[in-house]
Each structure stands twice: as C-alpha cells, then as structure tokens.
Write a protein that binds this DNA or RNA. Sequence first.
DNA 1: ACAATTAGGTATACGCCGTACGCCTGTCAA
DNA 2: TTGACAGGCGTACGGCGTATACCTAATTGT
Lengths: 229, 229
Amino acid sequence: MATPADATRPHRAPLNTQAVLRAAVALADESGVDALSMRKLAQALGVAPMALYKHVDGKDELLDGMIEVVIGEIDPPEPGVEWKTAIRRRVLSARQMLLRHPWASQVIEARTKVRPTPAVLAYMDTMIEIFRSGGLSVDLTHHALHTMGSRLLGFSQELFNESGGDDQEPDPETSRAMAEQYPNITALVTAITHDEGSVVGAGCDDQFEFEFALDLLLNGLERLHDAAS
Amino acid sequence: MATPADATRPHRAPLNTQAVLRAAVALADESGVDALSMRKLAQALGVAPMALYKHVDGKDELLDGMIEVVIGEIDPPEPGVEWKTAIRRRVLSARQMLLRHPWASQVIEARTKVRPTPAVLAYMDTMIEIFRSGGLSVDLTHHALHTMGSRLLGFSQELFNESGGDDQEPDPETSRAMAEQYPNITALVTAITHDEGSVVGAGCDDQFEFEFALDLLLNGLERLHDAAS
DNA sequence: ACAATTAGGTATACGCCGTACGCCTGTCAA
DNA sequence: TTGACAGGCGTACGGCGTATACCTAATTGT
C-alpha cells in the first residue's frame, strides 16, 4: 500500500545510474575533477561509498559515463546546412559544453587514449558525415579531422586569461623581473590589454580568438577543397 | 682522503635534484605518468621515499621540474631564419619531444593551468619574438598564439592510430556492429588504410598529418600578414 | 501462500598514495 | 674540539579505490 515515495523509513530515492552520473558531473563542475572521489561522491548522494558500485563499474567507468553525459549536451547537427556552417556550429556548441565543464577536456582526452566512449565515436562519426556530404574527399576529410584535433603547442592557452592564475596583483618588483626575463610576453600582454578599452579588466576575448582559429582553419580547408575541384 | 666515489659504505652517488628529475622523467617515459609515485621513484633510485623531499618540494614541484627538463630538450631558435621556417622548426622540435615523452602533454597542460613554469614562459617568449621580428603585428601574433594553442576538438587525435587502442584483432561480429553504428568512421578508416599500400600496417602517417595542419595554419597566417601590408 | 531470488545498501578491510614529523649520522667549518 | 648542517631513514596519519561478505526488503515462480 505504501508508495515508494512515502515509505516509512527515511528512504532517499533509490539512486539509479543516471543520478550517479549527474551528481558526479555536478561535483566535478564545482570542485574540480581532482576532488572527485568515490567517497566524496557517495557522501554528496547521502550514501555509503560502496553503494555506488551497484550502479557504476568503478571509477574509470564513472568517468566514461560522465563523458557520455556531457557529450550529450552538444547540439545535434542540423541537416541541410552548408558544411562549413554546420561544422562551425557544431564545434562552437562543443566549446560551450567544454566551458561549462572545465574538467571535460582533460578527462575526455585521457579516457579516449584508453578507449573512446560510444558518444565520442558517434560525435566523430557525425563530423565525418558533415564533411563528406559537403563534398570533401576522403583524404581531405581525414586531414581536416587531424587538423582540428591537433593542438600544435600543447599548452599556452591559459597564459593570458588571468595573467598567471593567482588572484593577487603582482607586486612591482616581480612584474619588473617578469618584464626583464620575458620581454616579449610582457610587451604583448601590455599591448593587448591596453588596446580597446572595451575589454573589461585584463585579458582577451577568448570567444573571438577561438572563432579566429576555427575560421582560419575552415577557410584553409575550403580553399584546398575548391582547388581540388 | 676518500673521494666521494670510493667511500667505505655502500654510498650511492649523493643524489641531487637533477638526478631525481631525470629519474622521474625516465620512469614516466617507461611506465606512464600514472605509475609515477614518490614511493616508486624512490625505489628506482634505491632510496627511502622521504629522501626525495630533501631535493624536491613535493609531487607538484617534481612535475614542474620534469616539465623544465623536457622543455629544455626543444631545440633553441636559430637566428636569421625567416619567421615561418623558424616557427615550423621549433614546433616540429617540440613535437619530437612530446613524442619522446607521451606524458608531457598532459602534465604541461595540467600544471600550466595552475602556474606556468619558467621554461614554459621562456618558450612562449621566444615564439613571440620570432613572430614579432618576422614583422607580424602584435594583434596577429596574439591571434597566432591562440590559434596554435587551441585544439578545437579536444580529443579524437588517437582514434585512427591503433583503431581502438587494444591489441587484438576485432572479431567479425563486433566490427560489423561498429560498421553499423559508425558508418562514416568505418568508411573513412577502411578507405585510408586500403589506399597506398606503402603504409606498413593500418593507420596513417602522423608526421604528415601534423605537418599538414601546421602548414595549413602557417600559410593562413602568412596570407593575413601579407594582406595587412 | 510461501519460498527463493534478487536489487539496493552497508561495514570492514587491504594495499596503495602523498607527506608531516622526528631522528640519526657522517662531513666540515670555526 | 665542537657544533651546524646536509642527506637519508622510520613511523604514522589521513585519503584513495575497491574486493568481499553481509543484511534487508521487495519481487517473483510455483
């Protein structure tokens, strides 16, 4: 007679796999992926650590499940759109997801090296489909994927965003030492931050920079495609 | 009278910071960075775990030191070379380093988010110098750095290299299921691996793909630079 | 109607990890 | 001679992932 909701004991809702994954994503979003442990996650769900293993095979599979969740947040491709626009929208949507979940980039990269998850494979599959139905050759599509997947430097992205990462103003002495040791960085940063007063504090417009890179690349691919026709 | 080398007790060489860092790099190279623990490193050096803390401040600082070591392996810039060639050589040299130390990319990215090491800053500084002395504007240099630092996808790079990561041949049934679920990936992979019999097993020429991406980007930057002149 | 199965949660324990703290022992300068 | 100190060691603490065994309530087959 008792419905599952008003059972006599302080039953919390019986906790399925999706709930575990969503809680894990939320916890990683707010505390960082390093602070995501099975024990902390269990505590956040009001449950003993080992209870999680009834719903998830282990930490690696938990991470894979979290990947599935966030990849699912990327907008699906719209049919009947020109390939360059379609790719552009998809990549920008993926970027929005990565900004919402700062841990995702690192986790996806690490886990994909071991074994790509179905959602990652599906994402890649639709990307290929867009290129191919846009008329790009197999070879050019292949090159395009590699080009968009490579990072060429492997780091550096976050150097300007917060000018160092810590929050306090650099005291004059250290900033003078900085200017001495890294004159080119210093010159570039001051030039950037002093231009166009529109930018709020310091730093640059990341969205603009991202689209700059994306368009540079897409235009290059289009040029190659046109030349081949 | 006893030289440090022939001391009476089984003294191993007194173990300085550089030796610790080099051992850590070697251990990460052969066992992966996940298997690199202070305890394992100490064991590899024939020393108690806590001995390391006399030479390194902690694990994070150990990782920073390892970054300094591998960044030091990147060829220094040669003066008097045209900017595009200079950048090209530097980036390819950095890539060789990253191939030698598969853990480096991940570690550098993670630590740079916290605080960039001096070597990373110095590397960036010389990159900026090359662009600027090549005549590129501050803005274009800025864009160039972002473009080369962004990955646009964040993953996917390793999908083709080993067609899945595990070593056994996929049995016919699973590969049929693959072909059904990811038709575009399947089509692309089979087309790539069946072309040009020159390629040994399966997979593609990573070096070629990397240079393709690099040149696509450098040519795009050059075009923008010429248009601005 | 009742026994058997099972799904969901728990408690305990093992072996790893990073590292704070204190101690010991040679070496060498004053 | 003495005392500082550099280098190394042992112990211990809290946190981690997770194997194993156990408990309880619901569900199901007969």
